[in-house]
Structure formats: C-alpha cells, structure tokens
Amino acid sequence: MSIRQGLLALLADQPMYGAQLRAEFEARTGGTWPLNVGQVYQTLARLDRDGLVVELGDDDEGRTTYGLTDAGRAEVERWWAEPVDRESTPRNELAIKLALAVTVPGVDVTRIVQAQRTATMRQLRDLTRLKASTTGDPDRTQLAWLLVVENLIFGAESEVRWLDHVEARVARAARRSQHTGADPGCRPDVQALAPVHESSRK
C-alpha cells in the first residue's frame, strides 16, 4: 500500500499533524505496516510540494497540522474509485525463492516447502487467535483492524494451499525425470511454479 495514499485518506477524515497521522495509520491497519515519523514527514513534504496538502498552522504544542487541498481531496476520491493495480504489486519473495530452488542443482525443494508450510501454519494459528480475542461489536477502528487481520488469515490459508500444490508438482516432475532422465529443473511445468507478482500476503 502507498503511504502517500494512506496519509491522504486519513487527512480526508480530519486535519492532523505528523505523529498523529502515524498513530492513526497504525491503529487503523492493526500495526501491520508500521511507519516511522521520518517517513510520514517526508511524505507530507512531497504532498505539500505536489499541492495535495497544505500546512494549516501549529497547535498549542507547536506541532504543524496538515489538511487536504481540493486537489488532494480529488486524489483521495480517485483512489477510492479505482481498483488496486496488481501490475505494480511487489514481487513475492517466497515464489521467487521456490522458482529459483527448482532450477539450482542440489537444493531440497521439498524441505523448503515443508519448512515454509510449518511457519505459515504457525502464523495462521496466531492470527486466528488474535481475531478470536475481539469481542463485542467493533467500532470503526476495531473493524479496520479486523479487516486487516482477516486479509492476513486468507493470505496465509492461500499460501498453505499453494505450498501443497508446489510440493505435489515438484514430486510429479521428479517422478517424470526418473523415467526420462531429464533434469526436472528444466521442465516447463516446474518453471511455471511461481507467478511474477504477489499472489498472497505473508
């Protein structure tokens, strides 16, 4: 997620100063993507330069408050309206790791898959317990946090299914190579294991 768009969305709610923006961003996303104050103020400086935010003055404690300009509000509305562009999604390190592993001689791909599955299942259990700790009707901030946690749960479940698929496909390729004498790392069906772009959240 773009920090730029996230800060603009928060400022559409109300004017805020830098540390307040950081706190609100982390509270509403469950602390999944922590920010430091330096990131926030660097982004605010660029948004100010681009005419999307404006300084509204200092509060009683000398903290500079920022608000949206008309252009900034239009940018937020555009972001709400447009789907997320998956072409710009960061590459998935796990998919790349496994795609390379099947092409490097001597790498035990099954062992990599099993170790990753164990770690992902552990994360899935932790996330499920975290979700279960929420009681009662959530307020807006709690609802935002729950949505992020549920996204991570769905991502972990998807990753486990994909790892099962990888293990089965690698096993099939190994069996074929035993019959044909071919290098399983060079087979097209093994090279197709991993998408270029991220398909799940860790």
Rank of each mutant, 00 (worst) to 15 (best):
T43W: 06
T43G: 03
L44Q: 13
L44I: 14
A45Q: 12
R49E: 15
R49K: 12
R49F: 09
R49I: 05
G51H: 06
L52M: 13
V53A: 07
V54L: 03
E55F: 04
E55C: 06
L56S: 10
G57M: 04
G57P: 01
D59N: 10
D59V: 00
T65G: 02
T65P: 02
G67F: 05
L68I: 00
T69A: 04
D70F: 00
A71D: 11
A71C: 02
R73M: 04
R73V: 01
A74R: 13
E75P: 10
E75L: 01
E75W: 02
V76T: 04
V76H: 06
R78L: 06
W80K: 07
A81C: 02
A81D: 05
P83S: 01
V84L: 05
V84H: 09
V84G: 01
V84N: 00
D85H: 11
D85Q: 09
S88D: 09
T89E: 13
P90D: 08
R91K: 10
N92V: 03
N92G: 10
E93N: 10
A95T: 03
A95K: 01
K97E: 07
L98W: 03
A99V: 01
A99Y: 06
L100H: 13
L100C: 09
A101W: 12
A101M: 11
V102M: 09
V102N: 13
T103R: 14
T103Q: 15
T103P: 00
V104I: 15
P105F: 08
G106C: 05
G106N: 12
V107E: 10
V107H: 06
V107Y: 07
V107S: 12
D108I: 13
V109P: 09
V109F: 06
V109H: 05
V113S: 11
Q114D: 09
A115D: 13
T118I: 04
T118W: 09
A119N: 08
A119S: 12
Q123R: 15
L124D: 03
L124M: 11
D126W: 00
L127K: 05
L127C: 09
